Simulated assay, not measured.
Amino acid sequence: MNAPPNIDPVTAYSVGDVVHWLTNDTRDERFLDKIFGEMCIRLQRAGIPVERASLHVMIHHPQWLGGRIMWADGMREAELTRVDYDVRERSEYIDSPGNEIHEGAAEVRENLERDPSLGRKHAVYDEMRAKGLTDYVAWPLYHTLGKRHVVTFATGRPGGFDDAHIAGLLKLLPALALVSEIRVKNRLARTLLETYVGSHASELILAGATRRGSGTTVHAAIMICDLRDFTRISDNWPRDDVIDLLNGYFDAMSEPIVRHGGEILKFIGDGMLAIIPLSEPKACANLLHAVAEARQAMVALNEKNSETGRASLNYGIGVHVGDVMYGNIGSRTRLDFTVIGPAVNMASRLEALTKQLSRTVLLSRAFADAVGGEFDLERVGEFPVRGFNDPIELFAYHG
């Protein structure tokens, strides 16, 4: 296994050893790009003159379609690049070997030593010729249920790959398909959970917190936000405009929360529930900084909406701090990972009061005490809150 690179393929280290390593010794490696880079180095040691290789996989992340893993001779690790959803509309993809594979080709092979005018015109071939590469091959990498990804190899060896090299690489593909599918599906599972329940909850679920009723008590700053008059907007605007308005609003509200260490737990129609655990340093201050940034983002969004003739969006935010039960709640077969408890109810009541008291952001006295004197807060007064016996002292934040 420690043979030097560029040895003859008849020596003890062979493609079979690379296959064995892929199937038996990569169990503890989570990241596909690291596996792919080391695989290429091991192929060189097995006598396969690979000098460039790439793996193109589709993940279906909310923001990007997939990833490209690129390795070249001399690199200790492969390089991972995200691929946007609009890639298939770009000329560099339309005019590429990868598109040929996705269109159904079983193999794309190009002799890079011959006159370029005699071969295909893909731009990537010119790039490889400029780097001294002589031969290129691309194959589909088959995952279950007909999913097709793409793997490519190139060499600078005079004469290109010979038949034994190609046979060795083909021998490798089934093992690479199995290993890559496991990592792709692991990443997909994480992506789906992070997308629909948040990063912290997803880690807990993947660690085994899937039993109904399981959970923990968390001391947290809690924020609930809701749009005003959205029923009227949704009744009077086309569906696609309504969805676009909602997405813009949620972007404006959510991104500052995440930047400041918070977690979006739930979107409820046009409402949002978020927390920042007090285990985070300066959690309460961070939440108010996020609220200030969200308000600025909403001003910018409303200016943009006004320029396009769309309705301006008004909203209310309720903020409280307290203990919440954080865990699995629901039916036997359909669970929600969320927070419940009197502290959540209080934040919800404060958000409802923003309309009655003509304030955009209302804070409880408990939160105002917790955040300290860093922020300029307006004392609004004491008001009865539905579901709570005593009036609650409220503060407004105009950040």
Rank of each mutant, 00 (worst) to 15 (best):
L353Q: 13
L245Y: 11
N302D: 10
E92Q: 13
M128C: 03
E89Y: 15
E351W: 05
A368E: 09
L169R: 12
F267P: 08
V361I: 06
H56T: 15
Y397G: 04
R30C: 10
I101F: 15
S234I: 02
A366K: 10
G47W: 07
F388E: 09
L245R: 09
V258E: 05
T26Q: 13
K185W: 03
G373L: 13
A283P: 00
A221W: 02
K171I: 04
R76N: 10
S254P: 01
R232N: 15
I222K: 00
V18G: 10
I222C: 05
W64S: 13
P277L: 05
G198Q: 05
K266Y: 09
V319R: 06
V344K: 08
L188H: 05
P49M: 11
G67W: 00
T144P: 05
R148Y: 13
G168D: 04
R190N: 04
R114N: 07
A123N: 13
R349E: 04
M128K: 04
E103V: 11
V50C: 12
E255D: 08
L245A: 14
R359L: 00
G341C: 13
E382M: 01
H165T: 06
T155F: 03
M325Y: 14
C225E: 08
Y93D: 13
N389A: 12
A164M: 08
P384D: 12
G330W: 02
I35T: 09
I276A: 03
S180G: 08
H102A: 11
V184I: 13
V371R: 02
L265E: 02
G261N: 07
F161M: 12
H200D: 06
I268D: 00
S364P: 04
L172Y: 10
I205F: 01
L301C: 06
M70R: 04
D240G: 08
H260S: 00
V124Q: 12
E280Y: 01
R295K: 12
E303V: 02
G146D: 13
D162W: 15
V150Y: 02
D33V: 09
A207R: 13
R332D: 11
M253I: 10
I329V: 15
G160F: 11
R27C: 10
W71M: 04
N286A: 03
L193N: 03
I7L: 04
T191F: 01
M253R: 02
G316H: 11
Y196F: 12
P116V: 12
P49A: 11
E29P: 09
V179T: 09
D369W: 00
S331P: 10
D135M: 04
R228K: 14
L178Y: 05
A274W: 07
G119L: 12
G261H: 02
E113H: 06
A285H: 05
R349M: 11
D73S: 03
D336E: 05
A252S: 14
H61C: 07
L118D: 08
G373S: 15
V197N: 00
T81M: 01
P116R: 06
I257P: 00
P256M: 10
Y249N: 09
G159P: 08
L273E: 08
T155E: 03
R114D: 07
